[in-house]
Simulated assay, not measured.
Amino acid sequence: MNSAESAAVVVGVDGSELSLRAVRLAAAEAARRHRPLRVVHGFIWPLLHVPLSAAPDGPPGGGLRNQAEQLVAAAVAEAEAAAPAVRVSGEIIDGEAAAVLLGESPTAALIVLGDRGLGGFTALVVGSVAIQVSSYADCPVLVARGAERTDGPVLVGVDGSELSDQAIEFAAESASGRGAALLAVHAYRHPASTGPGDMQPLVYDEAQLHTDEDRLLAESISGVRERYPDVPISRKAVRGKPGAVLAEASRQAQLVVVGGQGRGEFSGLLLGSVSQSVLHHADCPVAVVRAPR
């Protein structure tokens, strides 16, 4: 995460109801983090060389540029109503939505966007812009999806990797800001490997396996207990597919946090299979924490 005091929470808008939901979520996050909020709209039409101004005989306020200005103004007003103490600004940036948000990410504290926008196919659970931004952003990405809850814990997926540690830190900070508990979940299917190329035993004791995996989980969250003494922290190690386990647990959570790529996933993947699964199936907003490039 960008540590500069001036780093803003950035939210992408396209005029859809889903993007206005993202605006409200972003305003709340900016208030909790004592950050300014930037509302940005990727204005793709100049790239397509279409007329931007109102037709000479058209209604006042017509034209694509005017429409973009109106939707940004509406989003800014929505944010100011949701979080009056937050300094809010709006900007139209020429370019495709994902590219514009990725351009914002190196200096942003957090990118927030809806799971689908006006241009998304209704059959898609999560739109291409959300996937692209979650895959490439240089800061954490928060996708507004599922139910809006103010109760329940902040849920974080843990697998013992370095990126998982960053996700735990983000989740603990989020829980502290929300006055919520933190639930750390570690889902496992086989004994954890301790290094690349390790052979997993064909026969193992199930009870001992659970003890070992629970120990890994306990060690992973030990540091945040000291750094966030105000946050009640509980842990749960369960056997199962991580994506499915986290999606099910998200039904009682107000936020789920995952690392962009976990232990055992191919290094060439920009967005790991677990984080993709959670993005598609979670029942609450999802934060994806990626390693800085």
Rank of each mutant, 00 (worst) to 15 (best):
S134H: 07
A137M: 04
A130D: 10
V126C: 04
P140I: 04
V125G: 12
T122Q: 02
L142C: 04
A108D: 01
A123C: 08
T122W: 05
G127D: 05
V141W: 01
I131A: 08
I131P: 01
L118I: 07
L113W: 08
A130R: 04
L118P: 03
A123M: 12
Y136K: 15
D115Q: 15
T122K: 10
R116L: 02
G120H: 13
S128T: 05
G117D: 11
G117P: 12
G114H: 01
G119K: 08
D138R: 14
V141Q: 03
I131V: 03
C139L: 12
V141K: 06
P106F: 09
G119E: 12
L118K: 13
L124F: 03
D115W: 15
D138W: 03
A123P: 01
L110M: 15
P140W: 09
L118G: 03
S135M: 12
C139T: 13
Y136V: 06
P140K: 03
G117Y: 06
L142S: 11
T107R: 13
I111H: 06
A130P: 06
P106D: 06
V125Q: 13
V133R: 00
A137H: 04
T107L: 04
L118R: 15
G114L: 01
Y136L: 15
A137V: 00
C139P: 05
V141I: 04
V126M: 12
A137Y: 00
L110T: 08
S128Q: 03
L124Y: 00
V112W: 08
T122I: 08
V133E: 05
R116V: 00
P106I: 08
S135V: 02
I131C: 10
Y136W: 15
S134R: 06
R116K: 09
S134M: 02
L110W: 13
S128D: 04
S128F: 03
P106Q: 12
V141P: 01
Q132P: 06
S134E: 06
G120R: 15
S135N: 13
L110H: 10
G120F: 10
L110K: 11
A108F: 11
G127W: 01
A109H: 13
V112Y: 09
V125Y: 09
A108W: 10
A109Q: 09
A137L: 02
P106L: 09
V126Y: 06
D138C: 14
Y136N: 15
G120Y: 02
G127Q: 02
G117S: 06
S134N: 10
I131D: 02
I131N: 07
I111Y: 14
I131L: 13
L142A: 10
C139M: 09
V133T: 03
L118V: 03
A109G: 00
P106S: 14
D138T: 09
P140C: 13
S134P: 01
A123W: 12
I111W: 08
S135Q: 13
L118W: 04
P140D: 02
S134D: 04
G120T: 15
D138H: 09
A137T: 00
A123T: 14
F121T: 11
